[in-house]
Write a protein that binds this DNA or RNA. Structure first.
Lengths: 204, 204
DNA sequence: GCCGCGGATTTGTGATCACATGAGGACATG
DNA sequence: CATGTCCTCATGTGATCACAAATCCGCGGC
């Protein structure tokens, strides 16, 4: 179970933007940090590279990726593609209890913004999306969406760290409104906008 | 480079349906087969499980997945989503040379059908799609599509093994025709049909 | 004939080690 | 002061091993 602990810990840190792009990771360093030997550390790194969360240099050195603008736009397009579909599939199953939970997550996002806590903001933003998509009953599709989040993780921090906003995300409210109204086209548009909005700024 | 050899070999075998669903793989068995020690064999298996090509049992045992019908339908939906987008992006860049290559691949598919060679058929069918999608200049999206192919690999064999057809795939010709005509809606429909066709039969 | 139990063996896990390679810095030279 | 070279050390790779757990097989009881 040792490699799993390393994997989960690292994955969470990467996805939530706690590691800067270009940061190098060493086997022995990680092993020491998690109190394990090199073997499970290596497995965790390999797995994360397989998922695109880390890049291997030619010499086997591993680091978090520094994404080009083209790559960021492509990943944003993927998010849009996958998440619009997930939201659309979740819509018919979205009851009031789900909408309440989404609203409470949204309220917490507002708090994170007040506290200027970029990592917490990213984490809760993803929680908002995941909570909705879980209702789609499409595990493979959700897994792919999470893989995209993972790849964008390090760059996300650069984005939300720089943009100092005061208001909770506008499009989250649109998403909730569309869910309440059972408005599928509106939901698709709201999700696409929410997903694309920040990343367009990052790439530009 | 040892683990890479194991990884590539296994990945190819899985993607092309050379391994039956539910087939168990052992670390020592693989290591012996590829003439390496357990370490690189384990890395290859871990990486393939991370990509969804293999499933880990609770005890760490690894085997190729036996997909449920729901899962197959979900993966088919993913293929449709991703590949329609890839084809659409490739369309403006599809010149005559590409169409020629697609036609020649199609001709070889016809030969494979004559020889009743299921594995060769699957391999060339994927080659047809990959050749087209390469033109989309969207590496992350193509990688995701290939991951889906990988997950469907073992089940593909069950499909193409059972269906004893005589004609080359009809939808491939529609794809080529749409490419020639620059007909984007037609291309989207043709790709969606091609991707969904066989798998619907498998799930049903 | 069928089910449960127990031991032998297969199998995955993680630690450790020897080795090769590549990165980075110090130092001399222009 | 810049640059190239060499050396050292950090780092990834793969093999091997001890261990634990799970599986498998056969035997005995009902």
């Amino acid at each position: 179970m040792a490699h799993d602990r390393v994997y989960r810990g690292l994955r969470s840190r990467i996805m939530h933007g706690e590691i800067a792009p270009g940061q190098a990771l060493t086997l022995r360093g990680l092993a020491a940090e998690y109190g394990v030997s090199m073997t499970p550390a290596r497995e965790a790194l390999r797995r994360l590279s397989a998922e695109g969360a880390l890049t291997l240099s030619s010499s086997g050195r591993v680091s978090t990726p520094e994404l080009s603008n083209e790559r960021i736009e492509e990943l944003a397009a993927l998010r849009s593609l996958l998440e619009v579909e997930l939201a659309s599939r979740a819509l018919p199953r979205a009851h009031m209890a789900l909408i309440d939970r989404l609203q409470s997550i949204n309220a917490r996002i507002a708090e994170d913004i007040v506290h200027q806590d970029a990592v917490a903001y990213i984490r809760r933003n993803l929680e908002f999306h995941r909570t909705l998509y879980l209702r789609a009953q499409a595990p493979a599709m959700l897994a792919m969406a999470e893989t995209v989040w993972l790849q964008l993780g390090p760059s996300m921090r650069a984005l939300y760290g720089r943009l100092r906003r005061k208001d909770p995300p506008h499009f989250h409210r649109l998403i909730i409104a569309a869910l309440k109204a059972g408005d599928e086209p509106g939901l698709r548009l709201a999700v696409r906008s929410d997903v694309t909005q920040g990343l367009r700024m990052l790439a530009g």
